[in-house]
Design a protein around this nucleic acid. Structure first.
Ligand SMILES: [Mn+2]
Ligand SMILES: [Mn+2]
Ligand SMILES: [Zn+2]
Ligand SMILES: [Zn+2]
Lengths: 138, 138
DNA sequence: ATAAAAATTGCAATACAGTTGCATGCTGTT
DNA sequence: AACAGCATGCAACTGTATTGCAATTTTTAT
């Protein structure tokens, strides 16, 4: 397990420090995304700034992606697969649950194409669907 | 003109004070949306809190809608038409320009339907397209 | 293995958007 | 004119994001 986490960091050219391995391990367990504040609450021994910079590094190297959850909170989630440093391929839908306040990646749900007005040049897209998640719907 | 602004406020059951008429007038001139901070810079004579509460009232009465611009900034824009107090019909796409940092409503560009995984219940959607706006593309 | 260099971390401080409480001022009504 | 109710401004507070710098850890080169 620890071996796996370490090589995952190395493959993204991230120095595998103890801290970073613990953070990555935690993110991998997680079913949804997490905000910096919630991460700080979950991993109490870490300084907030360290977690901030850890997430920033992870994002820059293509290991996690940033999600605007649609309620003004920034969250982070492990990238699915093909993301590289400075190159995220993150065209899936995100789902915000009004009940549990969690934000889920829906990697199998692609963002459909939209036709923009004349002269608008698209570079990225974000689609946030809000409602009740499957766990809360039961 | 002033007459028009006043009756617009009244039709949404908002008390037409001098301040509110000036803010609404400014918003109507605007081609794109605006953040609280930028509004404060544009209308210097107003206190930030007054503008905050003005926008909040406008939003609650269905006169403006709130936009998460995808970069963590909340912006406000005049509603198109059928919005009522507590009931926004805001399923159009928003466009964020990386060059001028403005966020545009694209009222003619609807958000396409997406099929969610089993048991997810949709209530709202937000689609932000990022890139270069038509003015900056020239 | 050790020393030097480079990267990482923690603490303190700052920046900044959003929000609330309260005293004051304004407006319309009796 | 007196009153009630809403609107406004100021000060203060919250919460998140971000930076500077010194201390510590990790890596690299002897
Ligand atoms: Mn995602
Ligand atoms: Mn809009
Ligand atoms: Zn839920
Ligand atoms: Zn532009």
């Amino acid at each position: 397990m620890k071996q796996e986490v370490e090589s995952m960091l190395k493959s993204k050219e991230i120095n595998p420090t103890v801290n970073r391995m613990l953070v990555l391990d935690y993110l991998l367990e997680l079913k949804s995304s997490i905000s910096l504040t919630d991460l700080e609450l979950s991993l109490e021994s870490f300084d907030r700034v360290t977690l901030y910079r850890t997430l920033k590094t992870f994002e820059e190297r293509g290991l996690v992606h940033k999600i605007e959850d649609g309620m003004g909170i920034t969250k982070f989630a492990i990238c699915q697969d093909s993301c590289k440093a400075g190159m995220h391929h993150d065209l899936h839908v995100h789902f915000y649950c009004h009940n549990c306040k969690q934000t889920f990646c829906l990697p199998k749900t692609q963002i459909p194409e939209v036709k923009l007005p004349e002269n608008y040049q698209r570079q990225e897209m974000e689609l946030i669907v809000k409602g009740i998640c499957s766990a809360c719907a039961k």
